[in-house]
Design a protein around this nucleic acid. Structure first.
Lengths: 187, 187
DNA sequence: ACCACTCTATACCGCTCTGTATATATCTAT
DNA sequence: ATAGATATATACAGAGCGGTATAGAGTGGT
């Protein structure tokens, strides 16, 4: 894969997060990435195509990182879901964290028929399903219900963190998650 | 207060929610509102000024509606906080609900020095403080902590509803809220 | 040495954006 | 009836947007 393509992708990811998607022009992206529009448009057919690829890559990076963490730190399914918010906290409080792409994108493209909105919605659903799988492996009866609740806490905490960097909201989300998980677990 | 001014404000509120703020031009607003740019710019000095007023009015409408509901339905503080998510559900599932302004606005203007972002952040904080007041009146010890958790659930549920209209996420947020409130209450 | 390919540089098109200038119309208060 | 405020209609300026055209520079393989 082309190094320039990667560079454009990473630059766009940063700029979209820090300045907004609609507010970031293609000219700005290529200027910061140190290339030209011709090169960008050879790798990505339209700006919308670039946005979709940025969203996909961002979500893949997050999901892969999280999955690795969960699998390397513990094998027991009951432990995995309990550790979920520990790793989410690590991700969200990392200095390189600038926000979750699909959350911001869905706000900037509120029309449900817009491809960017649809991808955001799909990613949100997929993450929820990932949590649900963790929950059902931990033998929790209403796995989907718990997963939905945890995803609300997650998205709320990310939202709070995007609004006020270093707000510490994630710490309280973690506590709430623990309570919800305990409440949903068979005793 | 001018009727046209009101009309512009309401039209802008709708369009910002359904099409996004940056994607909604001033020309579109005046065309839908049935007036002209000259009139708009006599009432609002800049588009940013209009956005700020839209955000303020939206939040005031929500807060006033919620406060009225809570005060008319019950006087006991312990009941008020328990009913909080019942009314939030009523608000969010109403057909006229199109999203929360400050959540979308903070995503479209991620820079923390941007006035629109700052107002969004302030409104989020004020709503959290409102919940905290409910909690402390209900004699809950860690009122701020519970308020933060409930606000995360709220913002997460709104986020989910904005992504998928009629997702039913708010029902699960309500259940989670009940569990958190019970857990934080003295027995 | 030459070809094919990728990247650069720069200029441009057509459109949309915010905001303003100008001139006209409508309405109300005295 | 007339003055003053308010709204309309329309045109325009200046900038930025996404996307393309064209021509040339660098680089690797054969």
């Amino acid at each position: 894969m082309s190094a320039l393509r990667e560079k454009i992708l990473n630059t766009a990811t940063d700029l979209f997060q820090t300045r907004g998607i609609n507010s970031t022009g293609v000219d700005t992206i290529v200027a910061v990435a140190g290339t030209t529009k011709m090169t960008l448009y050879k790798h990505f057919h339209t700006k919308e195509g670039l946005i979709l690829e940025v969203l996909n890559k961002s979500q893949q990076d997050f999901q892969n990182w999280l999955d690795d963490k969960l699998n390397s730190n513990s094998k027991a399914p009951a432990d995995k879901i309990k550790q979920l918010f520990d790793f989410i906290e690590e991700w969200v409080t990392s200095p390189s964290f600038l926000g979750m792409g699909f959350i911001k994108a869905s706000a900037e493209f509120p029309n449900e028929e817009n491809p960017i909105h649809q991808l955001s919605s799909k990613q949100s659903l997929e993450f929820r399903q990932y949590i649900s799988k963790l929950a059902s492996e931990a033998n929790i009866k209403d796995a989907d219900g718990l997963a939905l609740q945890l995803s609300l806490l997650f998205e709320g905490a990310v939202q709070a963190e995007q609004m006020n960097r270093g707000s510490g909201a994630i710490k309280y989300a973690k506590k709430a998650a623990k309570l919800l998980i305990d409440g949903a677990t068979h005793h």
